[in-house]
Amino acid sequence: MSAFDAAVGRDGPNHVGRAQGSPDIQHSAKHAAYALASKRIIAGYGFWIFLLSDIVMFSAFFAAYAVLVDATAGGPSGRELFDLGNVSIETACLLLSSFTCGLAGIGARTRNGFWFHGAMAATFILGAAFLGIEIREFMGMIALGAGPTRSAFLSAFFTLVGCHGLHVAIGLLWLLTMMAQVFAKGYRPDILRRLLCFSLFWHALDIIWVGLFTMVYLMGVTQ
């Protein structure tokens, strides 16, 4: 029988393995390590499913945007409003922050505090820069009279991009929490599981941004 089986229990509600074998469950000290490892798998897998459901929610906003993109009600269109210079800086910030977030994960695995906190701080600065540029862009559009109430196109735009920005803001708060928890409690297995979930969340935000800058900004400027 597989070690994974012994750790989780064959018929437990959290059974995510495909293992088969004799059903005897050993409760030896040897398997304590496996129990921790499998909890990490379960937490990561559960969070993965949450992220996929989050992406499904985003797909509804993407669909609404794609349907309403031409419904400008005589107001400004994306071609007049979008500044690709801003968007390229935002994209660079988010891509680099995804990279530094990965480095922070390596820092945590190798128990290198300097590396971990440095990479997390870099991730925070890049994420905050992204959010600052986005808020400035929104304020500029609202000042031009192109706020979310102007047309169906702008309602869909602010909902979609704003929802992503909200996720980034929540991610930044989570990032600070993780830095504080590692600082105060060290690299405990439960803290490392939260870190795994955080890095999944942060990478997923970057994946959504790839769809977003392509469909909203680049296609909006070319069409």
Binding site: F4, G17, R18, I41, W48, L196, S199
Partner: peptide
């Protein structure tokens, strides 16, 4: 039994962990 063991999403494979190798993966990405 490695055939039956799962890996959490976002985790490297369970067997053999090298920080340098993972940094290389992130750099390529």
């Amino acid at each position: 039994d490695s055939h039956y063991v799962d890996t959490a999403p976002g985790d490297e494979s369970l067997d053999g962990y090298e920080a340098a190798e993972e940094i290389r993966t992130y750099l390529i990405g």
